[in-house]
Amino acid sequence: MESLYAITTGVLSACGLYLTLRGRTFPVVVGLTLLSYAVNLFLFSMGGLTTHGAAIIDGPRDYADPLPQALVLTAIVIGFAMTAFAVILAMRARGDMGNDHVDGRKHEEGEETRR
């Protein structure tokens, strides 16, 4: 299970990183979303992976670390809010700039608009 989990997290963050480095805002937002999924998975696993364990200390063995679960909940909420904000910002940028490049301009007309 560990290796499957690690591979999933790794693939998600690799895809997220690749998309974040793209030049248009939509792939960047999708990339950030994937990156935050990868981070949430990673956080969830940081106390070690357990199955069939209750999230309370219930005797000396067989319990899941409750702290990562609380943390991942916080991280999910924050990540979700951030994604919503990034989407709105990307739409505003598209509307105000007239294109969806992260630099706010197309490359061919770069020379004229550059200050």
């Binding site: 974040t20 950030l32 935050s36 990034a86 700039m97 706010g104």
Partner: peptide, 13 residues
Amino acid sequence: IQAAVHYVVLNLA
């Protein structure tokens, strides 16, 4: 807006 796009994306990463 243009400055904010860079700022937000970098800080999210």
